[in-house]
Design a protein around this nucleic acid. Structure first.
Length: 823
RNA sequence: GGGAUGGUGGUGGAAUAGGUAGACACAGCAGACUUAAAAUCUGCAGCCCGAAAGGGCGUCCGGGUUCGACUCCCGGCCAUCCCACCA
């Protein structure tokens, strides 16, 4: 009685059964080797679409494969639940951020369950729960004690109308995204984490991560931006102050024709005292004109602008007197905020000097051609120095060392390492985040809370006026007592950047209900490090760098041991388009999980997402494409259906006699080999495995017609659910039970490929003459070279090609190819 | 400007130690079943010449190494992504 496959009821029924039986729970004491596979925890934004589904289908396939290969698999899921969208929903629609977030979590949990994923839900965490964020605060206190958390003034984007700090993403064309007022740069007192202390290790240890994509490692290297520099000082004519600058090209020092300062440079007030009133006023006006500009505008979008201050610096080696300028192109936040301008040998300095009438001056390191020929563009390469006193004649490499030593000997220079990486600003003047556990006491000043004071609870049901941080306006939150002197104190009202909690959540999963510590070390010892981390490439720098920083801190404290990197292997899955276009709500072209599960089924969706492209590539969701996988699922069902209810507990590999039988048996083992190889090599190109599954099902469909009683056919039917289990878990389980098996197919070992089943008994020998294919002959494997030659010579085509010529050389690749070189 | 990655039929892709290019699928065409359609099943299919046998060309372009190159090397072009005045 043919019944069609009713994926809707089958899929739902098995999801409930798996959940009830807890088959994906990792206890940690199974005695099997561990494998920790982790997908980046999602932000609970509302609804999932097939782009998310690709990530989960992929991670789940790996988790299921590893389980079936004998590992105890840690596969947790949770919610990166603090953040701005919840607060915006609160402001826009009057919903409490906690409520909005909780509703989204419920919905997304449902959707992720609906995908039939094998998460261990007993380990679920949500970062907005006090049970989670109290450990944020606890970790903050440990960082504070270690001197790694500190407060200082920093320039930030400030909207004068809304009286709040804005994230860079909230500044659109220099204006506030909500009120459209011009955004200013303002110095505010902010909390920072001293990630720069770890710069050298974060850089060097990238070499210990061969399982990361090269591109990601390169980007982190560039982001950290380590350079070895010489730092030295110019004297200022008429002042005792020294002007610290640094350079990677100290060999060009004799070519400096000006010094350029950032407008915020601390020496500027002193300079204003020694120049004319007119100059001083001009300096202020210039600084004001840049004040409203964001860093992006000041650097990338604007022309290089500058103003001569009226003051002069003295080149410490040449003793030349050179003008001091203020400019927009020198960054206050990088290095010392001042540079020596060498127009002849630096592109930016060249452009600036030309625009502002500053002399290019002498060439110090001429290019390899005629040194008397004037430069038409800056020369930035190395060379042999001229016009540099006793350094003349040296190569750039030698001169860099010699000049550095001279400056050091003069007591005004040193070698230093500079990084582009800046300390991590974690303060946010927002409500929906972890309160920073610091109070400001009227008498003791800045005081950290004690561990027993934690958690500092985020007050609920706050009013959003849209002006400033809501926490500032809640008296009962702000006013507190000092843990040191019991006097009056005010709480810090800034909250933490949400990247703080996502920098260590992978450890909380291991011990999610612990009330005495963020995690107990034995759990970390059992499960760390994450063996395979999966997530989007957009987190290449921030999240992955912060997590590495935190893990190194934990390692230094002895809270984790082993390799001091959290993620051994990293995989960036590609995104999903719909008909080659980005999915977006405004376009109305989002393919949701609910709809596609309803119309096509979850197994078809999972198979399609794994099949269209290798997982790292961008895939294109098309209606035709998904219907191809729906057809495949139905074909699987039809092939197995005649065997339902038959007593056929087939486990041993049956004898296969005819070529068709052998091919079918081989097809089964080819799939098993492919699935296992893709997993163990960590290539994860399951698209090729599924293609081989297609071939197997095609062969099986015809075998069910032509060889319904062959032992091999029944064997293949019973093998199919096992092979399919990691990729299409529902139909695999349903078939498995219909075929008469009791236990879940997901608790079985994967099918082990058998060498003799994989053997072929006929090969195609390719015969080439001078590298061109002239014939293909079938033969039994194991041909000798002479036998191959004899077979080749039976082909009239081959004989025609070598007729009248001499065979000069024979190349024989066993069972594959014979190439005859003739002339 | 710097860096990374990639360029294969109408389409997505396969070819993972240099050895049958285009597996598998989608779209297409033809046939079977059907009153018909859908579904399903079978077959065809890189391009050019040829009735066929067969031949020529073919993995962005140009060179090179090799008996043999999608694969390795050199030079170019194009695309995508990331960073971009970092001294």
């Amino acid at each position: 009685m043919a019944e069609t496959y009713d994926f809707r009821s089958v899929e739902r029924a098995w999801q409930q059964r798996w959940e009830r039986d807890g088959i994906y729970h990792a206890t940690g004491d199974s005695g099997r080797p561990k494998y920790y596979v982790l997908e980046m925890l999602p932000y609970p934004s509302g609804d999932l679409h097939v782009g998310h589904a690709k990530n989960y289908a992929f991670g789940d396939a790996i988790a299921r494969m590893m389980r079936m290969l004998g590992y105890e698999v840690m596969h947790p899921m949770g919610w990166d639940a603090f953040g701005l969208p919840a607060e915006n929903a609160a402001i826009a629609r009057g919903i409490d951020p906690a409520t909005w977030t909780a509703e989204n979590i419920v919905n997304m949990q449902r959707q992720i369950r609906l995908m039939g994923t094998s998460y261990d839900w007993t380990r679920e965490v949500a970062t907005c729960e006090p049970e989670y964020y109290r450990w944020n605060q606890w970790l903050f206190l440990r960082l504070y004690e270690s001197g790694l958390a500190y407060k200082r003034e920093a320039p930030v984007n400030w909207c004068p109308h809304d009286r709040t700090v804005l994230a860079n993403e909230q500044v659109i064309d220099g204006r506030c995204w909500r009120c459209n007022h011009l955004v200013e740069r303002r110095n505010l007192s902010q909390w920072f984490l001293k990630i720069t202390d770890f710069a050298d290790r974060l850089l060097a240890d990238l070499d210990t991560l061969p399982g990361w994509p090269d591109r990601t490692r390169t980007m982190q290297r560039n982001w950290i931006g380590r350079s070895e520099v010489v730092q030295f000082s110019f004297g200022i004519e008429g002042l005792d102050d020294k002007l610290e600058v640094f350079t990677t090209r100290i060999d060009t020092l004799y070519g400096a024709t000006y010094v350029a300062l950032a407008p915020e440079h601390p020496v500027i007030p002193a300079i204003k005292t020694i120049v004319s009133k007119k100059n001083a006023a001009a300096i202020d006006a210039f600084a004001d004109s840049l004040k409203s500009k964001t860093e992006l505008e000041r650097t990338s979008l604007m022309e290089k602008q500058g103003l001569f201050t009226g003051a002069y610096a003295i080149n410490p080696l040449s003793r030349e007197r050179i003008p001091i300028w203020v400019t927009n192109y020198v960054l206050a936040e990088y290095g010392t905020g001042a540079i020596g301008g060498v127009p002849a040998h630096d592109e930016r300095d060249w452009a600036f000097a030309k625009d502002n009438g500053i002399p290019i001056a002498e060439v110090i390191v001429p290019p390899d051609r005629d040194p008397t020929e004037p430069l038409t563009e800056p020369y930035c390469g190395d060379g042999r120095l001229i016009a540099s006193d006793d350094f003349s004649g040296m190569t750039s490499v030698r001169a860099r060392e010699a000049i550095a030593q001279r400056l050091i000997a003069m007591g005004i220079g040193k070698k230093a390492v500079n990084t582009r990486l800046r300390d991590w600003l974690i303060s946010r003047q927002r409500y929906w985040g972890t309160p920073i556990p610091i109070v400001y006491c009227d008498t003791c000043g800045e005081v950290p809370l004690r561990d027993e004071d934690l958690p500092v609870l985020l007050p609920g049901h706050v009013k959003f006026t849209g002006e400033g941080s809501p926490l500032e306006q809640i008296e009962s939150f702000v006013n507190t007592t000092c843990p040191r002197c019991r006097g009056h104190a005010r709480r810090e009202t800034d909250t933490m950047d949400t990247f703080f909690e996502s920098s260590w959540y992978y450890l909380r999963y291991l011990d999610p209900h612990d009330e005495r510590s963020p995690w107990e070390k034995p759990h970390a010892d059992r499960w760390m490090n994450v063996d395979q981390y999966i997530g989007g490439a957009e987190h290449t720098v921030l999240h992955l760098l912060y997590s590495r920083f935190f893990y190194k801190f934990f390692h230094d404290r002895g809270w984790v041991t082993g390799h001091d990197e959290p993620f051994e292997r990293l995989f960036h899955q590609g995104m999903v388009l719909y008909n080659s276009e980005k999915m977006s709500k405004s376009r109305g072209n989002v393919i949701g999980i609910d709809e596609t599960a309803e119309t096509n089924g979850v197994d078809a969706m999972r198979l399609f997402l794994l099949y269209v492209t290798p997982p790292e590539d961008t895939s294109d969701w098309t209606d035709e494409g998904i219907s191809g996988r729906v057809r495949f699922v139905n074909r699987v069902w039809r092939a197995c259906e005649p065997f339902f209810g038959r007593d056929a507990h087939v486990h041993d590999i049956p004898a296969a006699t005819t070529p068709e039988e052998k091919a079918l048996l081989r097809g089964v083992h080819v799939v098993a080999k492919s699935a296992i190889d893709e997993t163990t090599t960590r290539r994860f190109h399951y698209n090729t495995t599924i293609a081989k599954l297609d071939e197997l099902v095609n062969a099986l469909t015809s075998a069910v017609q032509k060889l319904p009683d062959a032992a091999v056919t029944a064997y293949a039917v019973h093998a199919l659910p096992v092979l399919l289990a990691p990729f299409a878990p529902h139909i695999a389980e349903e078939l498995w039970h219909r075929l008469g098996h009791e236990k879940s197919v997901h608790l079985r070992p994967y099918l082990q490929p058998d060498e003799s089943a994989l053997e072929v008994d006929e090969i195609t020998l390719v015969v080439q003459v001078n590298g061109k294919i002239r014939a293909r002959v079938s033969a039994a494997p194991g041909l000798s070279e002479d036998e191959a030659l004899a077979l080749a010579m039976e082909e009239s085509n081959v004989r025609a090609q070598i007729d009248g010529k001499q065979i000069r050389k024979r190349i024989y690749v066993a069972d594959k190819l014979l190439n005859l070189v003739v002339s």
